[in-house]
């Protein structure tokens, strides 16, 4: 059972932000709660106060904006999957959000929470005193590292578990962040933090900040996109490896390509080399295979996750071929 806590449900973002500023570290923001409550039950987090933001109107819903869509951070994943504007303008995001967890989880979890969720590493989740818990080691480095990072690992080897994050990086989305008094916007590919930058956290949010919205530009005219997720089973799991790919073909050759991997690095990992391998080529078996090979260039598998290298290579190729 969780430790008890005080609870508030502020009506506005400003009110919420004011409450967050007061006691750093003792307060947690709750939206869908699917990650936080699990952490509290497992004693990974023990906030003294929860500030609920799911009912704040400003953080809700999908709206058309000048360049695309503005999606409130507390919008449910299920609402994103089913939203006609998302399906039409940024179908890659609808596909990725539809791959999160189960129907129940998508009915509970929010897009903001999906982006801000903590790692699934079993050492972290079982409360080993690792870097993430303030310790001075990563137990996966020499331990059971079957599901860990093959890119950007060290000193921690977690992988980023989000499905929507690779899609949003590929789409060139922007995160809107607020501390109540100060607003800032950050490109999605700058939102996430590698362990080398800060081993304790996975994104740039400060303790008194809230992710308020995601701005997603409409996918370029003529582009095609796909999200492919490989799991141990066919559904209801985190990615062993996932690929968000968006390709624009003009006059028979690739004019633009975005390829971002999930489940293989501590952040959504954009593979520029794979994109470069496609540019100026027709999208076919040969170019897709070359992009797959380029995608795993520089991979540094650990003792037990070597399978992720050929898996990633194959999934990138397969994703691209599905767009040809």
């Amino acid at each position: 059972m969780m430790d008890n806590f005080s609870y508030s449900r502020p009506a506005t973002l400003k009110e919420a932000a004011n409450q967050l500023g007061k006691e750093h570290g003792k307060i947690a923001v709750i939206a869908g709660g699917t990650d936080l409550l699990g952490e509290m039950k497992d004693n990974l987090a023990a906030p003294e106060r929860l500030v609920s933001i799911r009912h704040i109107a400003d953080l809700q819903g999908v709206r058309a904006s000048a360049s695309g869509l503005r999606i409130g951070a507390a919008t449910l994943l299920a609402d994103i999957v089913e939203n006609p504007m998302v399906q039409e303008r940024t179908p890659l995001l609808a596909m990725a959000a539809g791959k999160v967890g189960t129907p129940q989880i998508r009915n509970m979890g929010t897009i903001g929470g999906n982006l801000c969720q903590r790692p699934r590493c079993w050492y972290y989740r079982n409360n080993f005193p690792c870097y993430k818990h303030g310790g001075n080691t990563c137990f996966s480095a020499a331990g059971e590292n079957d599901f860990h990072a093959i890119f950007l690992g060290g000193p921690s080897y977690i992988v980023h578990p989000s499905d929507t994050a690779p899609a949003l990086v590929a789409l060139g989305a922007t995160a809107r962040i607020s501390s109540g008094s100060r607003e800032r916007t950050v490109p999605m590919d700058k939102f996430f933090v590698t362990p080398r930058e800060d081993v304790r956290r996975e994104n740039i949010l400060l303790p008194n900040e809230v992710l308020t919205a995601i701005e997603v530009p409409t996918a370029p005219a003529g582009s095609k996109a796909v999200y492919v997720k490989e799991m141990v089973r066919e559904t209801w799991d985190f990615a062993l490896c996932s690929v968000a790919a968006m390709v624009t073909v003009k006059d028979g050759i690739v004019a633009d390509a975005r390829i971002v991997l999930g489940g293989v690095a501590p952040i959504p990992y954009r593979v520029a080399k794979a994109e470069a391998a496609l540019m100026g080529k027709p999208l076919n078996e040969a170019s897709a295979a070359a992009a797959g090979l380029a995608a795993v260039d520089g991979a540094r598998p650990l003792a037990k996750n070597g399978y992720k290298v050929p898996l990633t290579q194959a999934v990138v190729k397969r994703a691209l071929l599905s767009l040809a």
């Binding site: 929860l50 609920s52 989880i105």
Partner: peptide, 13 residues
């Protein structure tokens, strides 16, 4: 109207 996991939904929420 939505199916959810009641084990991970706070009654106050």
């Amino acid at each position: 109207g939505r199916n959810v996991y009641s084990c991970t939904t706070l009654a106050v929420e």
